[in-house]
Design a binder for these strands. Structure first.
Length: 269
DNA sequence: CGCACCCCCTGCCGGC
DNA sequence: TGCCGGCAGGGGGTGC
């Protein structure tokens, strides 16, 4: 579920907890994509949350004592706010108890997510090197540099977290539709005017999705259970066989690197 | 170096 | 009704 707009939606819903203190951590399942280390609780207990930031699909909490908590939600991860007395349910792997009688629960059925805690300078081991388009928009020149030595398709470039941080399978298809570029086009062969449209589309699609609270498919929601609405605006993602909203041509589904891509053969070239 | 492929894990859906 | 295969928003490792 969580690409950049969904992670940003969760981050914003967490902001009221800046200033809270972590009074306890309960681990029910350590085996996530990386096993949660033995010192996880010790790194966190008693710490005050000073900041909550995001880079690409990673969330990180700045804590006092130069500590940090990092979270990645994988495919099915979410954070939920609950009363600290609420019972745990299946796939609730970690509960963070805050001083405001609130628990933040990390819930992740597929366990593709990551939780890590340690010194702040340890974050760099995890964070992607790609530019986050919400923190600083990419220009056509930036994209040209990134595309120059690529032999593969533009969709793979958009989804490479060390090129552009935060775009996943939904938004790659949506962005390419808006830019009028087919997902199989080789990145290095895309012309500058198209890269200009692509740079604009990256920004417009992601900003719009954040404004609508992300895409709620498979029940995505923020920490308060609020759903997003951007799925209602999807032009192509998961719409194969349906008409393109711009030209009515039937949308196609193809598979690239084992993942579905959706596009309109009339609007995209 | 870049890229395709396979794997990790659980849940859900459609077909038989 | 139940079972089975395929597919799902993530990324990392391997081998070419």
């Amino acid at each position: 579920m969580p690409e950049l707009p969904e992670v940003e939606t969760i981050r914003r819903s967490l902001l009221p907890y800046v200033g809270s203190r972590i009074v306890g951590v309960e681990i029910r399942e350590r085996r996530l994509r990386r096993t949660i280390a033995d010192d996880f609780t010790g790194q966190l207990r008693g710490r005050r949350v000073e900041s909550i930031d995001r880079r690409g699909k990673y969330l990180f909490f700045g804590l006092d004592g130069d500590r940090a908590l990092l979270a990645h939600l994988g495919m099915t991860g979410c954070l939920e706010r609950r009363p600290s007395s609420a019972p745990s349910s299946r796939h609730d792997h970690v509960r963070f108890l805050l001083d405001s009688d609130t628990a933040l629960v990390f819930h992740d059925p597929r366990r593709f997510g990551i939780l890590w805690a340690g010194p702040r300078n340890g974050l760099t081991e995890f964070l992607p090197t790609g530019q986050d388009p919400l923190l600083r928009p990419l220009s056509a020149q930036d994209l040209r540099q990134l595309a120059r030595n690529r032999r593969g398709p533009i969709k793979n470039l958009l989804m490479d977290q060390n090129a552009v941080a935060g775009i996943g399978n939904i938004y790659a298809s949506e962005i390419l539709h808006r830019a009028g570029i087919r997902p199989r086009r080789r990145a290095a062969r895309i012309y500058v005017p198209e890269l200009t449209r692509l740079a604009d589309a990256i920004h417009e699609v992601l900003e719009h999705a954040v404004r609508l609270g992300g895409s709620s498919i498979s029940d995505f929601h923020d920490i308060n259970g609020r759903t997003g609405y951007f799925q209602l605006e999807h032009a192509v993602y998961d719409r194969d066989g349906k008409p393109c909203p711009r030209c009515q041509t039937t949308i196609r589904r193809i598979v690239q690197s084992g993942r579905s891509s959706f596009y309109c053969r009339t609007c995209q070239h």
